[in-house]
Design a protein around this nucleic acid. Structure first.
Lengths: 134, 134
DNA sequence: GCAAACCCGACTAATTTAGTAAGGAATGGA
DNA sequence: TCCATTCCTTACTAAATTAGTCGGGTTTGC
């Protein structure tokens, strides 16, 4: 259960955009600032845009910016977009004790707890926390 | 960031042992009850024993049981044993802004939050919650 | 002694991760 | 109008991880 590098990159890019909320920043510039491979970041940003967390401007002088203010975007949204569900192989239709299945409730409980935790932290929190970094 | 099947198996086995806290249960029996491949479970149990969460008895009529009462074992311990750290590639010695590195603090904060959450749930909680399963 | 059970390391197939590569489409400015 | 810039999309690949299997060894109760 580790956070993938892909998600780390996505979080860092989102936090960088949160720091300059008013500007449009290109992938090239973001990749340079955060030392992330450009073509990889391109894919990540596309996913975040499709998920409705970013908006893009195409063409020259184009780039990305947050679709909502930093305080309105949680890291839960970012992580869920880039990682998908927490659960492993799901208890499917072949599970004979579907209703009260204890396995299901254990994983669900863990998933709910973690989701709640991550939804409780927004980008603004992280910008403030990491403000001293340069 | 998904919980591996390996960890799910480990959690289920630990919960099963928590239900019969007084008995010694063999891997064969545990594997049957929880429908987990026996030789795979064997490896998982060995890891949990090495981590100090289980104790084993060798030879005929041997098996495993929890080293401590269910209320004293958290799922954080189980998950950490079986999954290892949450973090991806760590911010190593080549990171030029080691001290105030914002990346580091972001991942650390996420990791701390999740760890706290998982350490707040013990095996007894889960036994009670899943008690209706059969 | 022998069967039941844990113990241990090596091996493998399938999947996921972390990218790279190549080209297409939109757009601002000269 | 042209063209450099920038986003957009799909396809591919090497390395790592996951989910096991396999074959043997050791311990112990009966």
């Amino acid at each position: 259960m580790r956070v993938s590098l892909r998600t780390e990159y996505g979080l860092r890019a989102m936090i960088a955009l949160a720091r300059d909320f008013d500007d449009i920043v290109s992938i090239k510039e973001l990749a340079r600032r955060e030392a992330i491979p450009g073509t990889f970041l391109e894919q990540i940003m596309a996913d975040l845009r499709r998920a409705g967390l970013l908006e893009s401007t195409r063409g020259a002088q184009g780039g990305y910016r947050l679709k909502n203010p930093p305080s309105r975007i949680t890291i839960g949204e970012v992580v869920e977009t880039l990682e998908g569900s927490l659960s492993p192989a799901r208890c499917g239709s072949d599970c004979e004790r579907q209703d009260g299945c204890s396995t299901r409730s254990v994983l669900d409980r863990i998933e709910r707890s973690i989701t709640e935790t991550l939804d409780g932290i927004n980008l603004e929190d992280l910008v403030v926390e990491g403000a001293t970094h340069e």
